[in-house]
């Protein structure tokens, strides 16, 4: 399955784009909201502003998915592939430097 047509990957891409677009402003609000030296009212207002951001602007909604199949579990981070795709590609010699262990 091509990666671009997997709905979960599309959602993840959307989240990544959202995080990138709003990161700077969110950081500024986070700084104000978490700063104990500022007056509580200001901090509270900043926290309210933080709550107005959408779901797909939070970095925690981003998940590394398998680039090939979109699977969310069993991802080998270095290659961005799920364990089965990693095995298939490694056996097919598509991953440089990866070799099946045998001793």
């Amino acid at each position: 399955m091509p990666a671009g047509f997997n709905a979960r990957i599309l959602r993840d891409k959307k989240a990544r784009a959202g995080v990138n677009a709003h990161e700077l402003v969110r950081r500024a609000y986070l700084y104000v909201a978490r700063n104990q030296t500022l007056p509580p009212q200001v901090r509270y207002q900043a926290q309210l502003q933080l709550n107005t951001f959408g779901k797909y602007t939070r970095p925690t909604t981003v998940k590394n998915r398998c680039v090939e199949t979109g699977r969310g579990r069993g991802i080998i981070g270095e290659f961005g592939l799920c364990r089965y795709q990693f095995r298939l590609k490694a056996l097919n010699n598509e991953l440089p430097g990866v070799k099946k262990a045998s001793w």
Binding site: P2, V19, L24, R27, R34
Partner: peptide
């Protein structure tokens, strides 16, 4: 040890590297 929120300013921005995860597809 008052929390000044400095860690939110000090941390690197993670958005640009997040965008790079999936390879760009040409259609």
């Amino acid at each position: 040890s008052v929390r000044t929120g400095a860690k939110y300013l000090r941390a690197r921005l993670r958005g640009p590297s997040m965008l790079k995860y999936y390879p760009t597809e040409l259609s």
